[in-house]
Design a protein around this nucleic acid. Sequence first.
RNA 1: GUGAACGUAGCUCAGGAUGGUAGAGCGCUGGGUUGUGGCCCCAGUGGUCGCGGGUUCAAGUCCCGCCGUUCACCCCA
Length: 417
Amino acid sequence: MKIGLPRGVQDILPEEIPYWHLIEKTARSIFEKYNYEEIRTPIFEYTELFVKGTGETTDIVMKEMYTFTDKKGRSLTLRPEGTPGVIRAYLTNKIYTSKPVWKVYYIGPMFRYERPQAGRYRQFHQLGVEVLGRKDPYIDFEVINIAVEILKSLELENIEVEINSLGCSQCRPKYREALKSYFSKYEDLLSPIDKERLERNPLRILDSKDEKVISLKEDAPQPLDFLCEDCKKHFDKVTNYLSIANLNYKINPKLVRGLDYYTRTVFEITTTTLGAQNAVVGGGRYDNLVETYGGPQIPGLGFALGIERLILLLKQQAKLGIEKQKLLFLAIEDENYLKKAIEISQVLQKNFKVEVGPLEEPLRAQLRLADKIGADFVLIINSSLIERNFIKIRDFKSGEEKNISIDNLIETLNTML
RNA sequence: GUGAACGUAGCUCAGGAUGGUAGAGCGCUGGGUUGUGGCCCCAGUGGUCGCGGGUUCAAGUCCCGCCGUUCACCCCA
């Protein structure tokens, strides 16, 4: 019986791994330079964590979670995003008692029950950061800057940073009401989904792609006009820092994002070349989230980046500068040299990537295998050379050959490869 | 969750409107040639046509259901 693959998940085969390593390596080194430390939280948590944090009115919680009950009847959920788990870890380990600021990053799989599509899978991977304990606008800039730096280091083109502010618990309710009363006037034009949003979460209507709503949105009240003094100042400073750093951005007053916990700064990094799934990075500030979980009043913010989407972009641009280590292949003329071959291979493998051929088989078979696995150089031990303690090396792509002394084999190879 | 297209050999794909139990290229295996791989030549290997059901004397082809892929909606990373 053949067992297939569940919908929306995939194997990441060895051929793909260089992309993953490149992204992880690049991101890690940037995170470390900004003084972020890695954290690994569980893949599943209590369902409640996401319902309270991500928000019960969000699509993620309402219809996209992988939720199950364990043998004791507890409701558990495969994490659909990284932030709630990190906040939970912050509280579980009472980090706030020892560290005024906590800056962490994570890399790992997330799970959402959605219809798969280009750049959208049921198991997908994100890397991201969370900062707890800093309310100053510089840190908003830093978080955006880190995301951009990762993309720039990977030489990505056609990316755009969009930013907006959603206000705080002081000014947001006023905006919410203004938006609600504005769209209420046009309730007849709204789709059933948008009507529901009107009650539940009017900000989300700004996200609507309904044709009729798109034109209505033009004249809708904008969150930036409703910001309180403090929020306005905060936003101005963030954008000012972006300008100082020469980081191009666009203020998008309709950017609201699909998670409930955001306050003040929200941002997205999008690309024009990924079709419908154009967001590569998303993030923002969440000054009330720690409190929502019953913790102290600690401000926070972060972003998440979709690794699969980033890989799609890297492939499109075909700019991947991943160098493969040259592969050496060791072959012998006949079995008399088997012992010698094993001795040499021991030395070689301390320094190079080496495949030892099927030494009991004819040389011809050994070489054929060398060709098939794509060897770059083949070392051949044969009778005429071994007496003088020499070995033959052939550049398998060009066919060029050389005899080199076994005594300084490593040194010679180092200069050749 | 909605809509559309698609699923034939290990891979890329033909065949399908007009039903008669499958083809190509590449790959793979063996042999020839080559000191000792590639190139070339010869021979061979390949498929419950995604799965299940239905119509029919007969289904890869028509119909239905399921699974999967892709794209869009939706949503987001």
